[in-house]
Design a protein around this nucleic acid. Sequence first.
DNA 1: GCCTCGCCTTGACCGAGATCAAACACGGGC
DNA 2: GCCCGTGTTTGATCTCGGTCAAGGCGAGGC
Lengths: 286, 286
Amino acid sequence: MSVLPNIPDPLADKDSSRRESNAQDGATHCMATSQPKGPPGKLHDLHRPGAGEGDESTFCHTCAFSGVCQVAGYGKPELLELHCLVEHVGPYRTGEYVFRNRDPFRAIYAVRAGTIKTVVVNRDGNEQVLGFFLPGEVVGLDAIYPEHYPCDAIALEPSHFCRFSYPAMTALASREPDVQQHVFRMLSKELGAASLLTGDHSADERMAAFLVDLSARYQARGFSGTHFRLSMSRGDIANYLRLASETVSRVLGRFREQGILRIVGREVQFVDGDRLRDMASNVFND
Amino acid sequence: MSVLPNIPDPLADKDSSRRESNAQDGATHCMATSQPKGPPGKLHDLHRPGAGEGDESTFCHTCAFSGVCQVAGYGKPELLELHCLVEHVGPYRTGEYVFRNRDPFRAIYAVRAGTIKTVVVNRDGNEQVLGFFLPGEVVGLDAIYPEHYPCDAIALEPSHFCRFSYPAMTALASREPDVQQHVFRMLSKELGAASLLTGDHSADERMAAFLVDLSARYQARGFSGTHFRLSMSRGDIANYLRLASETVSRVLGRFREQGILRIVGREVQFVDGDRLRDMASNVFND
DNA sequence: GCCTCGCCTTGACCGAGATCAAACACGGGC
DNA sequence: GCCCGTGTTTGATCTCGGTCAAGGCGAGGC
């Protein structure tokens, strides 16, 4: 039972997570054969707390891919084509692979609900967490160049995605300069975001930066930025930040006793957000 | 005097480096006013050892941007437009800024000759080296999203560049799907390359990975991959690898006494390349 | 030639965080 | 209820690489 009330719970959707479904074919909009289908199944049954129980377009407004969908889709003949471009997939169960290292690259994924982590496993079997992806964020852009996914993507909670066919997307981008521009910008943004891991910073700075980053990303997508649930284990956080999980525990414990945040299990509430941002500032602005 | 003979010396071009020239306007092909100009000044006077004294097209073949230039330029009416897209600039003198943090983003740079480093300076004035860029490599892609350069770019030796107007490039990409595709791939490749700094690795592994990476990049551009000159100081290497410069010295010293490489000053020769690659392997494949 | 200024190297010491170890908490299955 | 397994916390010790300090080396200026 949660001791921190009113936390938007990104897990949610307990029902659909128990459904017997083949995640890969969850809610396909457009088959390879192009045969006509009914309208795409709405995801109204998917609980998306924090963003309200908004409809499709409300959700899409918070998605990093919205530039593509909205430019391409709104009141234009490309609307039909968009249905071929976007395919709703899920739910994927906790621990399930969305794609695997070396899988041929065909599509980019936008998280509709849930969270995933991307990891690589080196030859001695140690896994390395590369990143976490929250609702509205885009995964798979680093697969364009090698033409296969360079990492595994694993759901940390029951998750849904929009899958964008890459060939269809580039074709669309060729005809719609705004779409092309949007993809350039998404790629470039991702380049700039790689800095959390680089830089030698203390465990405190890294942890603070991690929390501040998560907070900002939740907020940007319409969730609470001061009160959220960590969907990843301490071990995953530690691995991502290149710390030992013991160190993560100790730092979080210290933050708690210094009155910087409240944390019970995986539920986090910022108490002194300014203090956190201050600690994190050296990690971001360099 | 070099004790390691026959090293391609990327510095070279002592003459042009002493010229009194305004680097920013070195060899502009196409003025904003579109007034007709003579043919672009050839760079035959620029010493480019390792790639031979090749002509323009030989050089361009080794450039990461070649997909853009060649697709756009060969035997097509876009040839003229390409002259507006590409502008040769330089020489920049050692220590000179190619662009600065927060400068408005207008163009992407490809290194024609020389080397640059990109750095950010955090609020306490400590600089952080983000990367080194060798001939044929492209700088500035991370500026697309923020619309300003997110870092300083500083020449480590006398350097020349091809400057690509970003608006012209996107316009061209809209009309030439192959160009668009090429830019997507360049951006994606850069995303995948960010991994050298991430990951917690020993000083030995980082150093080995750094050398192997440099070697591969020189080789890919037609230079020797086993015998080259470091164009950056130990301090820059250390900063880039998030080590102390003393540690870099010690590790290099150890590599030397273990017979893994010969190193005198900034000149490096691989002796046991397999050993180096072995040490580095954990850094790359994860 | 000599001096100077960076850069590089080498040594001695120290500390943040990893590692090892042992409980503890919590949730699911029965 | 109980058991079991995973994830988390806390304590004790070790170690790699940072920091401080002192020289060494080499290129350029005069």
